[in-house]
Write a protein that binds this DNA or RNA. Structure first.
Length: 343
DNA sequence: AAGTATGATTCGAT
DNA sequence: ATCGAATCATACTT
């Protein structure tokens, strides 16, 4: 034991901070008496440090020389000793591996958007779900949808190829480090636990890179989504015929301009728009009419006449009578819409 | 370019 | 869930 401690202090002093001496003449004498001057060990360590600067062949040769060095077993056992002491202090530090909430959030979002997860099916399904959730009717899929899907697929593809690259790089690097450690385990003691820890460290590093990828992918999806929603927001006026149909219904039901679900569906069909568009239209119409009845008076009269004419035409057709003049061209039925007249 | 019309969205109330 | 109300954002008009 006495021997070993002396050896240990000598080695650590040299290896650690290139201190020329430990101030223990006894140890020096002992080493010298062994025919192994300290300077030699210093040289060896220097060579180890310089090994990365050398060419591969040189390094191989030196490694070989080192492995064959007669002090190697002693060095190894000393390193084992040191290890045993330090491992105890390290052991407690590495028992935490909580799943990063940030990366979980990103993962969830990517999964929800159909970027990660199962192939093609998931992607289009998620796109459809997103479109449906955005308020559109399931039947008005069109250029915008396919455009959105195409862009999403593009993002998805880039994401996956990048992810694959990262994973490949990670496993390559891990392999490399493992080989290195295996190689080094010939000169110094390396516990499996240590290797495990090293691998964990590498994986952590790579997962932080992955997180960046995921983050930027998420951003891209968000931008795409907002653009998609903006595109949906882009307004196009309904065609004349559609507005006419809607107005006809509105003014002929002025006392209760709240079409039932069935009526909405019928109007939607007639106008070539969605039910929610019909709802929007009636919502807007009601509030705008109520806000300024005067402004809509003319329009109201117009449609009152129109329906009257239609009715007249129908009856005329039925009764074979032919008088072009409208029967009630004198006084229009004043629309008496009561804002609070909901039933 | 400024003003108006209009479809869509959002929010709180019911 | 649906409405009114306010508001947004674009289309259309002047």
């Amino acid at each position: 034991m006495d021997d070993q401690t002396r050896m240990l202090t000598g080695l650590t002093g040299l290896g650690g901070l290139s201190q020329p001496d430990v101030g223990d003449p006894d140890s020096v004498r002992k080493q010298q008496s062994l025919g192994q001057p300290q300077q030699d060990i210093g040289d060896i360590l220097q060579q180890i440090m310089a090994i990365t600067d050398e060419s591969l062949d040189e390094a191989q040769a030196r490694k070989h020389a080192l492995n064959c060095h007669r002090m190697k077993p002693a060095l190894f056992s000393v390193l084992c000793e040191i290890k045993e002491k330090t491992v105890l202090s390290i052991r407690g530090v590495q028992e935490e591996d909580p799943p990063d909430p940030q990366i979980m959030r990103l993962d969830n979002m990517l999964l929800a958007e159909g970027v990660s997860g199962p192939e093609k099916g998931g992607g289009s399904a998620a796109a459809a779900a997103a479109a449906a959730a955005a308020g559109g009717s399931p039947t008005d899929s069109s250029i915008e949808h396919s455009d959105y899907r195409a862009k999403l697929a593009q993002i998805r593809q880039i994401y996956h190829s990048e992810l694959e690259k990262y994973e490949q790089a990670c496993s390559e690097f891990t392999n490399h480090v493992m080989n290195l450690l295996r190689e080094q385990s010939r000169t110094r003691p390396i516990s499996p636990k240590e290797i495990e820890r090293m691998v964990a460290i590498i994986h952590r590093k790579f997962s932080s890179i992955q997180m960046q990828l995921k983050q930027s992918t998420c951003e891209a999806v968000m931008i795409l989504r907002s653009r998609f929603l903006d595109a949906r927001r882009k307004r196009r006026n309904f065609n004349k015929q559609a507005t006419e149909v809607l107005n006809e219904y509105f003014y002929s039901h002025l006392s209760n301009p709240y079409p039932s679900e069935e009526a909405k569906e019928e109007l939607a069909k007639k106008c070539g728009i969605t039910v929610s568009q019909v709802s929007n239209w009636f919502g807007n119409k009601r509030i705008r009419y109520k806000k300024n009845i005067g402004k809509f008076q003319e329009e109201a009269n117009l449609y009152a006449v129109k329906t009257a004419v239609d009715a007249a035409n129908v009856s005329a057709q039925a009764s074979q009578a032919n008088s072009p003049a409208t029967p009630n061209s004198g006084g229009y039925p004043a629309p008496c819409y009561t804002p609070d007249g909901r039933l």
